[in-house]
Structure formats: structure tokens, C-alpha cells
Amino acid sequence: MGDITHVPTFVVELFGITLTVNYLTVFNTWAIMATLIVLAFIVRGRIKETPGPVQRVAELYISAMDNLTRETLETTSRAYFPLVATMFAFLLLCNWWGIIPGFEEPTKDLNTPLSLGLMGFFLTHTASIRAKGIGLYLKEYTHPFFIMAPLNVVGELAKVVSISFRLFGNIMGGAIIITVVSWMVYSVALPPFLYAFFGMFVGTVQAFVFTMLTITYIAVATK
């Protein structure tokens, strides 16, 4: 119980720079990536004219993601569809990962959501520059008056903070609540329901919110 604030770390000296690595996060992320790749190969091997159950589930997922992207991004949806589908699948698996005994959610570590949030940030701004040109892009920061420029910059940075801490806070909060409550009731009766709520329900909603917010930011920035 006393270990809820303990972070397993591994320190490496590389070219004079000290890197602190949370090896559990790295291991779990790689395991999730491997699972996704294996799943992709299994689905690819079974593509037939008349779809079987595996292919049907995969098609359902792909078409749902395609509709979602189309509704939000309209014309440029094709370019962002792979990102959206992959991000949602990855985050969903990340958030559900803690349900498997012995594994931990990589999203419990702030580094995972923060790096995905930063990726979304850079993607949004490059898309915006590409769609509008650098002049119009810079001009938007002076809306409504040029005095507001610092506030607009802070607002953009706050988006990264809110999107990544929202995911991190929910998953970390769920994990800590499960740990503490399990300790209080001696792991009797309650924990499965907590896993169902925090793992399955909150995990799904937060994966969806993260993905949707990323593409909504892109859609707003390119309009």
C-alpha cells in the first residue's frame, strides 16, 4: 500500500546525458504495440470475399472510425484516418491493459499522454501552417487585438496540458483508487466492479475523448 507513489525507474548515462526511464511503462507500451501488430497480421491473413467473424469486427471498427473522421475533418479526412484509427486502438488497449493481472497501464505514466499530446500539438500547428500559410497563421494570434497575443499563445499551450493531464489523471486516479479500495476491503467483492468502471468504461471514454479532441483541434486549426 505504501507504494502508490513509488515509480520504478532505471537510470542510464548516455553521452553525458542522464536519462531516467520508467521501465514498466516501456515494457507495457512495447507489449501493447506487439499485440496490435499481431492482431493486424491475424486480421490481414483472414481477409476473404465472405467475411468471417474476425474480419467483421475489424470492418466494423474501421468503418466506425472512418465515419467519425469524415464527420469531423470532411475533405482532409483520408490523410488523418490512419492516425485516428491507430491512436484510438492504442489508447483503448493502453487503458484496458491494467485489467490483466500483473500489467500496468502505460497511460498511468504522464510521459505517454504527454508525448501523444505534444504529437497532436505539432501536428495541429503544421496542418494549420500548411492550410493557411505562415502569414495568416501568425496573424491569427493577434485576434481580436494584438495585445491578446500572449494570451493566445498560453491558450495553445494550455491545450496540451489539459488534453494530456485529463487522460493521465483519469487513468492514474482509477489505478490509485483501485489499489486503495482493494487494500481497504482486503480485495473482497469490490475490485472487479471498480476495474469494470475505471478500466473499461472510463478507459473507453477517455480514449475516445483524447482522439476526438486531437482531430477536433486539427479541424479547427485548418478551417
Binding site: I4, N170, M172, I176
Partner: peptide, 22 residues
């Protein structure tokens, strides 16, 4: 209802940390 309780979960997280932080 479940989603409007997200801030509550954050607050519970902070409370647990406050109680159990060494």
C-alpha cells in the same frame, strides 16, 4: 452522470495522495 464525476475522481486522487504521501 458518470462523466460529470470526473473532477470528483481527481479530488479523490488528491485526497488519497495527501493521506498516503510519506
Amino acid at each position: 452522470q458518470a462523466l460529470s464525476q470526473t473532477p470528483l475522481i481527481f479530488a479523490l486522487l488528491v485526497s488519497f495522495l495527501l493521506i498516503f504521501l510519506p
